[in-house]
Every structure is written in C-alpha cells, then in structure tokens.
C-alpha cells in the first residue's frame, strides 16, 4: 500500500500528530459513539449541520479550557457534543442518561470473571 505518511519527517514536528494510515478509531467506544450519531442523523433526529455546529462549539470550549486539541481527545469532544445535542433536542434528559450510566456501572461491578456485564434497568437505584 502506498498509504503512508512520511513518518520520519513528521516525528520532528511535536505539535502535528499523525497516524500510519491505520485504524481511525483508538477504541471500540469511539466507533460506537460515531455510529450512534450517524444513525440518529439518518433517522432524522437532527440535521448534520446542527451536529457540526454542536461539535465545533464543544471543541472550541475545550480549547478555551486548555485542551491542546491534538486529535487524541476528539472523540471525547464528540461524546460530549452527542449528549448535549440529545438533551437539547429533548430526545432524552441528562438524568436518564446518568441513571442508565449508573445501571451500567452496577452491571459492570457485578459481572462474573470473564463475563460481559448484564444491563438491568434500575439496578443502581436505591432499594433495587
């Protein structure tokens, strides 16, 4: 394949991150966050320009807060923007997302060795 950056030249450039033409996602969650966004858009939950505006805002405020924004935090911004847009569109609420996250954490803590976590809605609620 001819798809390689001239890596030796780039190594001298501390502020210009680059790849080797390899996978564009660093972790499975990044791919999933990306795919959820694309699917929501396809189903008409938001326009792509709304998405771009939300993501650009997110990146701008991260930069303002001191993120050097070297591309490695890109999908963290993406995830923040996705949560923001979903709650702004009243598709879900911050509370519901947080509750589901707590349920997933509970599932994760209770899984057996080598087993996948089993999601139980409301598992993290008091008295459940």
């Amino acid at each position: 394949m001819n798809d390689q950056i001239k890596g030796s030249d780039l190594k001298h450039t501390p502020h210009l991150p680059h790849d080797e033409g390899g996978p564009v996602f660093n972790a499975p969650w990044e791919a999933k966050a990306f795919a959820i966004t694309v699917d929501l858009h396809k189903r008409g939950v938001f326009d792509w320009s709304e998405w771009c505006d939300t993501l650009a805002d997110e990146i701008r405020s991260a930069q303002a807060a001191g993120d050097p924004d070297l591309g490695d935090t890109y999908y963290a911004h993406w995830l923040n923007a996705l949560e923001t847009l979903i709650t702004a569109k009243k598709v879900s609420t911050a509370e519901s997302l947080l509750a589901a996250k707590d349920d997933w954490r509970a599932a994760d803590e209770h899984r057996g060795f080598g087993e996948a976590p089993v999601f139980v809605k409301g598992a993290a609620q008091p008295g459940a």
Partner: peptide, 27 residues
C-alpha cells in the same frame, strides 16, 4: 466514557431511535 456510550445506546434503543444492528454495521 465506555459507560456513557453504553448508557446512550440503552436509552436510545429503548426509544427505538437507534437500531443496534445498524450501529454495528456502520462501525
């Protein structure tokens, strides 16, 4: 971040707004 993505996936598929199979296909 993994927990947040899983939370999004659960909440949105409960509402029928995403299809987990479509998500896997896009990935």
């Amino acid at each position: 971040v993994e927990l947040r993505v899983k939370a999004l996936e659960s909440v949105l598929s409960d509402k029928g707004l995403i299809d987990p199979e479509a998500i896997d296909l896009i990935v």
